[in-house]
Simulated scan of single mutants.
Amino acid sequence: MLFAQIDPMTEAEFVALGETGQRHEVIDGVLLTRPAPDLRHQRISARLRLALDEAVPNGCEVLGPINLRLAIDRIVIPDISVLTTPGGDKLVASAAEVLMMIEIVSPSTEPLDRILKPALAAESRIPFYGLVEPDGPTVTISALDGDGYRVVTKATGDEPLALTQPFPLDFRPADLLATRR
Rank of each mutant, 00 (worst) to 15 (best):
P127F: 11
V76D: 00
C60N: 13
P107Y: 12
V76K: 09
P160M: 10
N67L: 07
I66L: 11
A93I: 10
D53P: 02
V151I: 09
A122N: 11
R74N: 15
E123Q: 15
D79N: 04
I77K: 08
A71W: 02
T85Q: 14
L120P: 05
Y129S: 00
A95I: 08
I77F: 06
L161S: 01
I75E: 06
M101V: 11
R69I: 00
A96M: 12
L70P: 05
L68A: 07
E123N: 13
D135M: 10
R49S: 03
A55T: 09
V151D: 07
P78A: 00
D145I: 11
M101F: 02
P65W: 10
I80C: 05
E123F: 13
R150I: 11
T153L: 01
T140Q: 09
G136D: 08
V76A: 00
I66N: 03
L52H: 03
V105Y: 03
F128E: 00
C60G: 02
P78V: 05
L161P: 00
L131V: 12
L161D: 01
S106K: 07
L99T: 01
A96F: 11
L50M: 13
P107H: 10
G136T: 09
G59V: 08
G136A: 07
P118H: 00
V56M: 08
D53H: 13
R150N: 07
I77L: 04
D53L: 13
L52N: 02
K117A: 08
T84A: 11
P57R: 12
D73C: 07
K117W: 04
S94R: 14
G88S: 10
L68P: 05
L112R: 14
R150Y: 07
N58G: 11
R114E: 02
S124Q: 08
D53K: 13
I77C: 15
D113W: 13
G157K: 12
A96Y: 09
E110N: 04
A162E: 14
P127K: 08
D89A: 14
E110R: 15
A143D: 04
I141Q: 01
R125N: 11
P107T: 02
V151Q: 13
P57M: 06
G64A: 02
I115Y: 12
I141M: 09
G88E: 05
S94F: 10
N58A: 15
A122T: 04
T109C: 08
T138W: 02
A143C: 07
T85M: 10
R74P: 11
Y129H: 02
A119P: 03
R125A: 14
N67F: 08
V139Q: 00
L63I: 04
